[in-house]
């Protein structure tokens, strides 16, 4: 039985073994109506690691990951994903890159007019055109099993609870086997028990699908459960970067306000 500290050490060690960055962001800047949201943000996501980006509401966390998939266009700086400059990609090249990235939205963003099965089939049929009907069925059953909702196939999103919606949304994201996962506040609006379940699920996804992840959150329990490395974003700039231990033992009042 591993202690929590040893597990954390293994996670950090895992990062150092694979020191190739899959995402590299340099001097990223973004403003909305003359208000600077991101100020020269630079960070790297290494192969196989879970990077937690902590920050208060409005600190620019969600803007950061939306810039990575170019849902928002940055004002300056560079974003490189798998050694490709995201800002220089043409529409079809960007689409090819996006197929390798899974994005879990804060709201879940399930398609209201479709059943759970149709929600999962929708990206799968369009991205994995090589799959047969049988493969599609099996894949959907597999991911639903993995998120712990094997019997939800015919339910409509309106029939699901908040936690179930997050799980189905995660299932829809992992059904296409992404290499990178971007989680936008995965536990926001959930009760503590369901938050813990989602946190465990994020860990399972990393293990089973060998993904590298950026997890945007202000939920410390989620950060503790998943972080290999933590970046604290304060007023649009990186304030501190380090391991979970560094943050836990920090005496800095800004950091302590999170790790109480």
């Amino acid at each position: 039985m591993k202690t929590k500290q040893t597990e954390t050490f293994d996670k950090v060690h895992y990062k150092t073994k694979n020191n190739e960055p899959v995402i590299e962001i340099t001097n990223l800047r973004k403003s909305f109506n003359n208000q600077e949201v991101l100020k020269d943000v630079s960070l790297k996501l290494f192969d196989g690691e879970n990077l937690v980006v902590l920050g208060k509401s409005g600190s620019g966390k969600s803007v950061l990951i939306k810039c990575i998939v170019r849902l928002l266009n940055p004002d300056g700086g560079t974003i490189s994903v798998f050694d490709e400059n995201v800002m220089a990609l043409q529409r079809n090249e960007l689409n090819e890159l996006r197929k390798k990235i899974g994005f879990l939205f804060q709201s879940g963003a399930l398609y209201d007019s479709m059943t759970v099965k149709q929600n999962l089939e929708f990206p799968l049929r369009r991205i994995r055109k090589d799959l047969s009907e049988k493969d599609i069925k099996e894949k959907i059953a597999e991911v639903l099993e993995n998120v712990g909702l094997p019997d939800a196939q015919n339910k409509m999103p309106s029939q699901l609870s908040g936690g179930m919606r997050k799980r189905i949304s995660l299932a829809r994201t992992i059904v296409v086997d992404p290499l990178i996962m971007l989680y936008d506040e995965p536990t926001t609006g959930l009760d503590p028990a369901t938050s813990d379940e989602i946190s465990l699920l994020i860990n399972d996804v990393q293990t089973k699908y060998k993904t590298s992840s950026i997890i945007i959150t202000h939920d410390i329990a989620c950060a503790r459960a998943n972080a290999n490395r933590i970046v604290l974003l304060l007023d649009g700039a990186i304030y501190k970067e380090g391991s979970l231990e560094t943050f836990e033992h920090s005496t800095d009042p800004e950091i302590k306000s999170f790790f109480r």
């Binding site: 849902l71 689409n95 990235i101 994005f103 939205f105 963003a109 929708f122 990206p123 991205i127 296409v176």
Partner: peptide, 8 residues
């Protein structure tokens, strides 16, 4: 946005 990031 979910459609866009799914390359749809």
């Amino acid at each position: 946005e979910a459609m866009e990031v799914s390359s749809i």
